[in-house]
Amino acid sequence: MSPVYLLVFVLFLVGVFGLLTRRNLVKLIISVAVIEAAVNLFLVLAGYRREGIAPIMTEQHHRAEEFAARAVDPFPQAMVLTSIVIGLSLLALLVGISLRLYHIYGTYDLSEIRKAAREEDR
């Protein structure tokens, strides 16, 4: 059991706790980003090999079996690469939504937004 995984889980839980308790939209976006970073790190850690080499062949390392025995796992890396870019577009969408809410209600505070929305309904 390695403390590395534990720390990644703690990072994940910090993000979850923030997501559950914060009321500010920007803080919520930051919590989502923290959770995302933790998950990405966990996936890449699952493919790490001690003293491994990056999964990029060079002219020196191109004998396939030898390379496969030393390289780290490229598969989680490829998936995490897509996840990082999706995270950016998600962040752009979230920022768009919160800017729009600020535009309408003049605050980032979720409880105030809820209060204002309830008053509008009346």
């Binding site: 390695s2 590395v4 995984y5 850690l45 699952a46 493919g47 790490y48 090999r49 001690r50 491994g52 999964p55 396939a64 079996e65 390379f67 496969a68 390289a71 780290v72 796992d73 490229p74 598969f75």
Partner: peptide, 19 residues
């Protein structure tokens, strides 16, 4: 830590990709 999952599971596609 430091032992990739692909080493434990023979059916993992990663070894195929690497080789």
């Amino acid at each position: 830590f430091g032992e990739p999952v692909m080493d434990r599971i023979a059916a993992a596609p990663s070894g195929f990709y690497l080789e």
